[in-house]
């Protein structure tokens, strides 16, 4: 004979527990943390390079954790822009989890950081499931990928707070309807904010960088005890 025991708990509760610890660590230091997610090749690393270069002349101190299955290439690229960047090599795993971030932070001191960018492994599916303690998940959708992605990969759009419509400079050459992409993404997540970006030519990264600075200031204002 068997007995059925109801359980009702999140399968990823251990990840959520570690992520809650990270969130507390970020909050206590007034750090605004962004979890950047997209498919491979959408432009995450280039966006971060441009963002770091722009922040170099500002009072905002940034740091980057960048996840890839193999190679240190992204961290090498990102370190050229004046801020610390650390590679997390997952060795086959298709997403970052909270424990990987916590381990990486052993080598990246949080003191003196205002904004922590976590560049997830290029993948629109798996990273959606894992809370990394971030303030916001930012999903990058480039116009060369097709405007049907939001309904094909609803999980990540559902959990994102901001969508970057990226490579907008290529829009004249792509069969991509930005209005349709935004409308579909908001079917899944009505509160989704949208910012148009490009690394080469207009509209550039200015609106995105301003968004990050606004959110950092809002977090600092909401948590006045945080030690910058």
């Amino acid at each position: 004979m068997t007995e059925r025991v109801p359980v009702r708990e999140n399968v990823l509760k251990e990840n959520d527990r570690v992520a809650a610890g990270l969130r507390a660590a970020f909050g206590g230091r007034g750090i605004f943390c962004v979890n950047l997610i997209s498919s491979p090749g959408a432009g995450k690393t280039s966006i971060l390079e441009g963002t770091l270069e722009a922040l170099r002349g500002s009072s905002v101190r940034a740091a980057v954790l960048t996840g890839d299955i193999q190679t240190e290439r992204d961290a090498d690229r990102l370190r050229r822009h004046g801020f610390p960047a650390l590679q997390i090599t997952t060795g086959g795993t298709c997403h970052l989890d909270a424990a990987m971030v916590r381990r990486a932070l052993d080598s990246l001191p949080l003191d003196g950081i205002d904004v922590l960018f976590i560049e997830n492994v290029g993948n629109l599916v798996c990273p959606a499931s894992y809370d990394l303690g971030e303030d916001v998940k930012v999903v990058v959708l480039s116009v060369t990928e097709g405007d049907d992605k939001p309904l094909k990969y609803p999980g990540i759009f559902r959990r994102a707070g901001l969508m970057l419509l990226h490579k907008m400079d290529l829009l004249p050459h792509a069969r991509f309807d930005p209005a349709a992409a935004v409308a579909d993404a908001r079917r899944v997540q009505p509160d989704l904010e949208v910012v148009e970006t490009s690394c080469y030519g207009a509209p550039g990264l200015g609106a995105w960088i301003a968004w990050v600075q606004r959110r950092l200031e809002a977090k600092r204002a909401a948590e006045p005890h945080a030690q910058p």
Partner: peptide, 18 residues
């Protein structure tokens, strides 16, 4: 309409030997 279900990934029950 706003999403109210379909997000979850949860352990619901176990069946154990008596």
């Amino acid at each position: 309409g706003r999403l109210s279900g379909g997000d979850e990934l949860s352990l619901a029950y176990l069946e154990l030997d008596d």
